[in-house]
Design a protein around this nucleic acid. Structure first.
Lengths: 366, 366
DNA sequence: ATTAGCACTCGAAAGAAAAGAGTGCTAGCA
DNA sequence: TGCTAGCACTCTTTTCTTTCGAGTGCTAAT
């Protein structure tokens, strides 16, 4: 059903008031903002409460948005916030240092996101399955060689192998051709015992080495697939009044600090066409997040990799501001890493030195 | 001056009582434990207070140890606690997974320490200056090659280099011999501009490459020297009643989470001959730690590397238990990494199987 | 439909009183 | 001289009341 214009304005005002103050908002406060008397507001609010969009902490307190109320706000009412020039400049400046390794970059992005939003933030990159493109073996001495594996994502892994027995250059060469023949172009799932065994048969006297190098290979591939999850600014939670209760704070902190838990809930499910997803309170799968909200954005990390950055906070979160910042950062990352623009008409020009007028889009789809 | 036997017992009882309960401990409580009347205890406590070993939060509360009291306790009174079989077993089991990269191992050690002690823990390894032992160059195609550097600490670093122009195998070989001649055996401090320039001169037409590889080299060396600091379980702070005040908690959390701050205060200064150092409240340099305590232990990480693990908690910390656990873990790490025993007669036997060490590093294209 | 007015509710804040814990001191006892 | 028992005193903590005020729901008037 459709809400009257005035109801929308009231709901918006309640949400934004509550976001700003963390206090339930009452009818009198809204009276002048809406432009009618407090009694009218009360009637309207009463109806909104009936519809499940607002809630009362107790009989005589102001109203507070319910999760459904937030949801409606995020979906339809929220004003797409513009970032100030200072903010875009700050983000641009941070992102300009593009010569980082991706690992470090993600850590910095987490920091950046957290400091821009004042909420705990996480960042991760999902990689597509990788395979080894080529192996090289560097012979050091009788008992030592280095395996170097160039992966399809153009990262290079290596391992120094110390042996309790001797090998010669010849054997290393054999090993090299065996691995280049049998272990290139396959993902970790595709490395079966039978491949390993047949390689071992073919290896003859360097038999024992195959297992070592094969397990190294699998490790590399598995590690490359696993997204390292970076969490930054977890302790910012403590700034939020809703987490002044140390027990609550502790529970959520634990959850957040453990990247794997966070990762399992968040990445894949439907992002809106603008690349932003908001999950509010009970919409979250994880029990620990049932009364917190998560805003996440995705970006194109190039080479078919998809990355995610997100923010965790109380349901009373500044959705509009956070969404704006996240999508700006995500757009910047996409450009930086993949040279592509963000999914939909964000006309963010990420001009690295100089900041023009930046327009910003942020929205949400259920 | 020397304390009477009974004063010692009283002080010990106060410290341990306070550690256990976080409540000031009064004379009546101690009466039966010490075996004389509460009045006597009061007299003694009054004197201890006069000596600055105990404090009263207010006129009529029990006594609480002062920093000096803790110090005395730690130095002279504390019983070295024995670990239960279950605890040693848990530690051994965790440490048994030795085939980790040192990076990951440190992260796990942090986790382990934190979970054993229930306090936030950190772990780091200080490395002596390293140099490159040898360079290898792997030619991939006209525009691409991989530099592999074997360092003196037996880690291997690599970098995939993409060029905007072509090189051939020949040039790569030249580069290889140049670097092996000029850049091996020198630490990052010793790589001067003049070395780089003279190498560039000698390089002839591969001139431009020298800078790239040289800067990679310096990066490796610098990175290898810098100790990455791992912090684990920071949120456990919130379990401690002294940090129930969110503001305090926040301040300390921030301090702790930022490994660099922690690192700067802690590592070098005098460890006791048992490899354990305790700094109590105001003894800490960092302002943020003035009313917390730090217990740290060091271990031998092999190859002249020294490592540190430590724990941060309230001054009312279970020094005895923490110290015991830390030194056990440190001893285990020493064995694991260096095959040496801990500095002094800890009779913790850490039974582990022997196996070869290998290290691994993974680099990343820039 | 909107508004003004009013009685009512319920939490938060403030205050008062009581309870409790622990001390310091003094006096008595071995 | 060293220990103990007893008691008055101090301060915090807890609990109970009271007050206050914000905000509501309802009704009647515009």
């Amino acid at each position: 059903m459709e809400l009257s214009e005035r109801k929308k304005r009231i709901l918006t005002a309640v949400v934004e008031g509550y976001i700003a103050t963390a206090e339930p908002v009452g009818s009198k406060t809204l009276a002048q903002a809406i432009g009618c008397s407090s009694a009218t507001i009360r009637n309207e609010m009463s109806e909104l409460t009936g519809m499940g969009l607002l809630e009362q902490p107790h009989t005589s307190a102001g109203r507070v948005p319910s999760p459904a109320g937030y949801r409606l706000y995020v979906n339809e009412l929220m004003e797409k916030q513009k970032l100030s020039e200072a903010e875009t400049a700050a983000i641009n400046e941070k992102l300009a240092r593009k010569d980082e390794q991706i690992e470090k970059l993600m850590a910095e992005v987490g920091q950046l996101t957290s400091s821009m939003t004042q909420y705990p933030a996480y960042a991760l990159t999902m990689k597509p399955p990788v395979a080894v493109k080529r192996f090289d073996f560097i012979y050091i001495d009788r008992n030592t060689f280095i395996v170097v594996a160039l992966l399809t994502d153009n990262t290079v892994k290596n391992k120094l192998v110390h042996l309790p027995f001797s090998v010669d250059q010849e054997q290393i060469n054999t090993l090299s051709s065996l691995f280049n023949a049998n272990f290139t172009g396959v993902t970790d799932r595709e490395i079966t015992d039978s491949i390993i065994r047949s390689t071992q048969r073919a290896a003859g006297d360097t038999y024992g080495l195959v297992a070592v190098v094969a397990s190294f290979t699998m490790e590399c591939l598995a590690a490359a697939r696993t997204a390292p999850m970076r969490v930054a600014g977890a302790s910012r939670l403590l700034n939020q009044p809703e987490y002044r209760d140390p027990d609550k704070a502790h529970a959520l902190m634990n959850f957040i600090s453990d990247g794997s838990r966070l990762a399992e809930d968040l990445p894949p499910a439907g992002l809106g066409q603008d690349g932003i997803r908001v999950t509010i309170g009970p919409e979250n799968m994880a029990e620990e997040l049932k009364d917190s909200s998560v805003v996440m954005a995705s970006y194109d990390a190039g080479d078919g990799m998809r990355g995610y950055i997100g923010v965790v906070g109380p349901t009373r979160m500044d959705y509009s501001g956070v969404a704006a910042k996240l999508s700006y950062i995500a757009a910047g990352l996409s450009r930086l890493l993949a040279g592509t623009d963000a999914p939909e008409g964000l006309n963010n020009k990420l001009v690295l030195k100089e900041s023009e007028r930046h327009e910003q889009e942020a929205g949400q789809e259920g």
